[in-house]
Simulated scan of single mutants.
Amino acid sequence: MVEVFKTNVQNHSDAERLVAELSKKNSILKINFDLNDCDNVLRIEAKKINPLEIIELMNSKGFQCEVIL
């Protein structure tokens, strides 16, 4: 399963910190940010994804995040 999010993450150090935090979730297989995309895309591949959980984690770290449909 793959979920794609629009974020306001601007730099690679923040992206790396968030990847480390998100990687703690057992079901996540692959995470990457595309900061060259106008939506600063966060793409997550996992066995099971709860988008609200990802959004809440991102918000708790001070970042905006929403699912791209």
Rank of each mutant, 00 (worst) to 15 (best):
M1F: 15
M1G: 15
V2S: 09
E3F: 10
E3C: 14
V4R: 13
F5Q: 03
K6Q: 15
K6R: 15
T7F: 04
N8E: 10
N8T: 09
V9W: 00
V9Y: 01
V9S: 05
Q10P: 03
Q10H: 11
H12N: 14
H12I: 12
H12C: 11
S13V: 09
S13G: 06
S13F: 14
E16A: 15
E16F: 09
E16S: 15
R17T: 05
V19G: 02
A20E: 13
E21T: 14
L22V: 06
S23A: 14
S23N: 10
S23W: 12
K24A: 12
K24M: 10
K25L: 09
S27V: 15
S27P: 01
S27E: 07
K30S: 09
I31N: 04
I31T: 05
F33R: 04
D34F: 03
D34C: 05
L35F: 07
L35H: 07
D37P: 09
D37H: 07
D39K: 07
D39S: 11
D39T: 09
D39C: 10
N40E: 10
V41F: 06
V41E: 12
V41A: 11
V41N: 05
L42I: 07
R43F: 01
R43W: 02
R43I: 08
R43E: 09
A46P: 03
A46D: 08
A46W: 04
A46G: 12
K47E: 14
K48D: 12
I49V: 14
I49F: 10
N50A: 15
P51G: 07
P51D: 08
L52W: 13
I54R: 01
I55F: 00
E56P: 01
E56I: 06
L57M: 12
L57F: 11
L57V: 08
L57T: 13
L57A: 02
M58C: 05
M58V: 08
M58T: 06
N59E: 15
N59I: 07
N59W: 06
S60P: 01
G62C: 08
G62W: 03
F63P: 00
F63L: 10
Q64V: 14
C65R: 05
V67H: 11
V67M: 10
I68W: 12
L69P: 12
